[in-house]
Computed example of a mutant assay.
Amino acid sequence: MSLNGARGGAEGGAVPLSPPDLVESALAAVAAGAGEVLVHPRTPCGRESLSPRVVGPLLEAMRGAGVSVPLSVSAGIGAEPDPAGRLERVRAWTVLPDRAVVHFAEPGAEELARALLARGVAVDAVVPLGGEAEGRLAADPGAGTGAEPGAGTGAGTGAEPGPLARFLAWPVRDPARIRLAVELASADPALVAGLRWLPPVPLLLFGREAAAWPVLRLAVRCGAGARIGVGDVLHLPDGRPARSNAELVAAAREIAGAPATAGSR
């Protein structure tokens, strides 16, 4: 469940920003069935941050309040644009999240992911697919047909490798600590079919805004993990504005048709 994402207060009252609001929203979402919580920690002025003085107190507040599911932190350029700065921040953390999100479209992703794993933090490797996103499989004639991994992603063409090619070239293959989080621009089953030759790590699918609910339905049909939350979408499946993360999670569970947390991470 994406608790707040990169959103600001101007995007509505459903977006939790302060630590107390984030804690309250997380507790309600977990009560509604969320199996994980992803948060973008922020400074008092609202800027995303990976500083241990921001990340640590927030994680402690959540755990101290009884948020019992795994907690994940986004470790992207929105919080620290400089790759070396991100490494420095992560290595200085005194309180560790259970997982961290690393965007393989961003510079320094491989080294950042290794640093997190070395600290005992599991990694969600985010790869965008579809539309104009890097690493698009739909544009690859060999995708899903047994073609060599990395085809159609910039690998072997002299172009800068795309996010998927970078992930495939990354040597770490630990299903217990690595999860591939694929951001789909649309709920295209062909994109998911093209993922079948990927390394045997857990797969999570998610979309943003108009793609969020169609991709969640696709994930449920495919048996993949899924994600929803204010950080990804501000409306319910019927188009009504969501009042909270808990309301989004409850709607996701209804779509999944099961008491488990499919669609509610």
Rank of each mutant, 00 (worst) to 15 (best):
R89Q: 07
E132N: 09
S25R: 12
A165D: 05
L71C: 11
P163H: 01
L71Q: 14
A34P: 00
G231W: 04
V192D: 01
A260C: 06
M62P: 01
S18N: 09
L112N: 08
R86W: 09
L50W: 04
R86H: 12
A256D: 04
P171I: 10
A224F: 10
S186G: 11
P44F: 01
A61S: 14
A165Q: 02
S186H: 10
P44V: 11
E36H: 09
A252Y: 07
V102R: 03
F206W: 15
R217S: 13
T157K: 02
A109D: 08
D82C: 14
G156L: 12
I178R: 11
E134W: 00
L204Y: 04
R243F: 01
H40Y: 13
P171C: 00
A176E: 15
T153E: 14
E60L: 05
V69M: 07
G12R: 10
G150A: 07
D140C: 10
A252V: 05
P202F: 02
V23I: 04
E36Q: 14
A165C: 00
G9V: 05
A84C: 00
R166N: 15
D82R: 15
A187L: 07
F206Q: 14
E48I: 00
L17Q: 07
G78E: 13
L112Y: 13
V73S: 05
L216P: 08
A34H: 00
E160A: 06
G33E: 04
A122P: 06
G13W: 02
L205N: 11
A28S: 07
P97R: 12
R221A: 14
L112C: 00
A185S: 12
S72T: 14
N245A: 13
E11A: 15
L195S: 14
G56K: 05
E110N: 03
A185C: 10
D238N: 05
G56H: 07
H235R: 14
A242L: 07
V54E: 07
R7S: 06
A118Q: 14
V90R: 06
A169K: 07
P202K: 07
A246T: 06
A260L: 08
A185N: 05
A6V: 12
D174I: 02
V215P: 01
A181G: 11
G207L: 03
V54G: 05
S74Q: 03
G207Q: 04
R53K: 08
H103L: 05
G9P: 01
E132G: 13
N4P: 03
S68I: 09
L87P: 00
C45N: 15
L112S: 12
R173V: 06
P81G: 11
G131A: 04
G223E: 09
A26E: 02
A139G: 02
L17P: 04
G35Y: 07
A219E: 02
F206K: 12
A159S: 06
S49E: 15
G146Y: 04
G207F: 01
G229N: 03
V121S: 13
G152L: 11
G35W: 04
G154D: 15
P189V: 05
D232R: 05
G12V: 02
E60H: 14
F167C: 05
D21G: 03
A61G: 15
F206L: 15
R217I: 03
A185L: 10
S49Q: 12
G76A: 15
V127E: 12
R196T: 08
S264M: 01
P202C: 13
R253T: 11
P163Q: 04
A193W: 03
W213Q: 06
G35E: 09
G225L: 15
G131S: 03
L96M: 10
A250R: 03
A75R: 08
